[in-house]
């Protein structure tokens, strides 16, 4: 089934708009289609172009255009939508997902552990890659060498904020990276490693591993490797996977009486 057919089907079921791709000047760009525009929808998903689809959906909800929306989503987009839904940024129940499975090539490039959404409408399923070679490569360095490696990488940062701006799960109104008390203003590269580690700490329990941060980084800093590790840490400690399903609660998102510690901690 092509995306256009699926979109037509969704319109028949009563969705108000479909977020899909439109071919403009030879490039496919995201566009919110209404029922009358359905013939303009790209049949395929641009193979190597990826967009922060979840971020766009969040902005649609912010603008008050909330209605039933169909969304063309890859595995990572779906995870981001679930994560945003859990954190109250969007209403996940209003969304109908047109699932697109990534190609094997794409999945290998991303070292993605789940390159397909929960239901696949387009493409064929490729089982993901469970162990990230890039993370292992950094882990195998000696402590001081690892710090030197990261410092050298971070030193090329231009503080363009691209990683934050494109991140589908970054939605804070006040951003710690803009806090003068944490990161000094007016210097490039920004204070490293604090600038990048602040983000890494934030990404733990939130990062859904879409890798758009790394794609958008003009300096080619391997941010994805850093955040992949942050996600692995949370998985290991709390058995929590961001965006896996709507029922799992984030270990850092629960406060008060609901707070729990990882198994075995402080048991007498």
């Amino acid at each position: 089934m092509s995306i256009r057919e699926k979109a037509r089907q969704l319109f028949a079921e009563g969705v108000d708009g479909v977020l899909a791709f439109k071919r403009t000047d030879g490039v496919c760009i995201p566009h919110l289609f209404t029922k009358t525009e359905v013939e303009e929808i790209c049949k395929d998903v641009p193979a190597d172009q990826r967009y922060p689809v979840a971020g766009i959906v969040r902005r649609i909800f912010l603008s008050g255009l909330a209605g039933k929306i169909g969304v063309v989503a890859r595995g990572c987009d779906e995870r981001a939508l679930i994560e945003l839904g859990k954190q109250g940024q969007i209403d996940f129940d209003l969304l109908s997902i047109i699932g697109v499975a990534c190609s094997e090539e794409q999945a290998r490039y991303c070292e993605c552990s789940k390159p397909y959404p929960s239901r696949i409408d387009v493409g064929s399923r490729f089982e993901g890659i469970s162990v990230s070679e890039k993370v292992r490569a950094v882990e195998s360095m000696e402590g001081d060498e690892r710090l030197a490696y990261w410092l050298a990488q971070f030193a090329s940062c231009l503080k363009c904020m691209g990683c934050r701006n494109i991140c589908p799960v970054c939605y804070c109104v006040e951003c710690s990276l803009e806090d003068e008390n944490l990161v000094r203003r007016g210097s490039v590269p920004p204070d490293w490693p604090v600038f990048h580690l602040l983000r890494a700490v934030d990404m733990a329990s939130r990062c859904i591993d879409c890798g758009l941060c790394e794609e958008s980084c003009p300096s080619g800093i391997p941010l994805r490797t850093l955040y992949k590790k942050a996600t692995e840490i949370v998985k290991e400690l709390f058995d929590y996977e961001p965006g896996a399903d709507m029922t799992q609660r984030s270990p850092l998102g629960t406060i008060g009486d609901q707070s729990e510690l990882p198994g075995g901690a402080f048991e007498a």
Binding site: V138, E139, M141, G143, D144, E145, R146, L147, A148, Y149, W150, P193, L197, A200, V201, A204, S205, L226, K229, A230, I233, V234, L237, F238, P251, L252, I255, S259, E260, L261, P262, A265
Partner: peptide
Amino acid sequence: YMTYKRYLILREILRFAG
């Protein structure tokens, strides 16, 4: 409780950062 959870995560991130 919150401190402890954050500390566990932070420690591992610091280790990974070298």
